[in-house]
Amino acid sequence: MATANTMDYNAMDEGEFRRMLRGFIAAECPPHLIDQARRVRWHEAKDWVLKLSAKGWLAPAWPVEHGGMGLNVEKMLAYHDEFDSAGVARHPDIGIVMLGMLLVRFGTDAQKAHYLPRILSGQDIWCQGYSEPGAGSDLASLRTSAVLDGDHWVINGQKIWTTLAQDSTDIFVLVRTDPAAKKQRGISFLLARMDTPGITVRPIETLAGDAEFCEVFFDDVRVPKDNIVGAVNDGWTMAKALLGFERLTHGSPKFAQMALQRLAALARELGVFREPAFAETYARLALDVADLTATYARFAETLKSGGALGPEISVLKLWGPDLYQRISEVMIETAGEHGVTLGPSTIGGAVFDPLGYYFLSRPTTIYGGSNEIQRNILAKTLLGMPG
């Protein structure tokens, strides 16, 4: 059961706040979740998630009245910086960083009362049913349908690249509820239990050998009529809001920060900071990470103050994953022969997985809206260029 927060973390001195987080992480975070160069599964992260939940620290961005920490931007950045500096792996958190914030903003009182506590307690683990084989970056072309039949929606179709669907208890899914309407206007946002009859999950193995993504098939899947978030055929509003949260998440500096920290540790073990070429490369990457962090803080402040994330959020989605990939490439080059070894290797007196970081960074420029699509958004909406 999640613990309600009674402490005003925003009133704390930042140094005290950081020391509090650092001490808890050092004492409680399982060693197997430190410096993982892959996405961890629910069974690996469950105990840690429940510890964070019991502490009231699982949802730093959520309002206090909904069980979150209610952190302002400065404390939010400090929170993520401490977890990332310690090398804590990202746990299955789609319910926290995506659906939870969406329900806070658009959900009914009944939906908030039912789902938010279950997310915080670890009872419900969510996955995202957006992309389809014929509707990836062009999400509005989705064809998965939902037809109202009495008190239930009947869903038919397929989703793909669904992260950790095999570990999830629930899925939020975009469906077409009015095939005659224009693409964006006939879409609705539904919630479904993964054990509902008619749902089939098929894992997809990645280049790194992990089953991080899945296909999800819907065959006459019946979900209650009240499982819709927002109005019927207004799912695109939900989608845009959630994509804003997602692009903020995917553009977060934490991925680049963690990779940069591992690169620095690797460089110290190999003694390459003495080499001028590497020192210059590292300095440029560190400055880029600092700039990304400052830009992220601006967008996070807009979101936390109740503002909407406009098309300019695509800058963050472009920049963060690209920087993450560039750091992973330097890590491979720096590691030399160990850079082409699959799995952890002992280099000097420490263990590193350069190829793991490289593989983990590859899809970041594709998911959440490919970088090519983000450039088109910026060109059309901010620069006024023809589509």
Rank of each mutant, 00 (worst) to 15 (best):
A4Q: 08
M12Q: 14
D13I: 10
R18W: 14
R22F: 15
G23F: 04
I25M: 09
A26W: 05
A27L: 09
P30H: 09
I34G: 10
D35Q: 11
R38C: 13
V40C: 10
W42G: 03
E44R: 14
W48I: 05
W48D: 04
W48C: 04
V49S: 06
L50K: 12
K55A: 13
W57D: 00
A61G: 06
V64I: 10
G68I: 00
M69H: 04
L71V: 14
V73G: 09
V73P: 14
K75N: 04
K75Q: 08
M76Y: 13
M76D: 14
E82L: 09
F83Y: 15
D84T: 13
S85I: 08
A86S: 14
A86T: 13
G87D: 03
A89K: 14
A89Q: 07
I94F: 11
V97Y: 13
V97A: 15
M101V: 12
L102F: 08
L102Y: 11
D109T: 12
A110H: 02
K112Y: 00
H114T: 02
H114P: 01
L116T: 03
P117Q: 05
I119C: 02
L120N: 00
Q123K: 12
Q128L: 12
Q128S: 10
Q128F: 08
G129M: 12
E132R: 02
P133V: 07
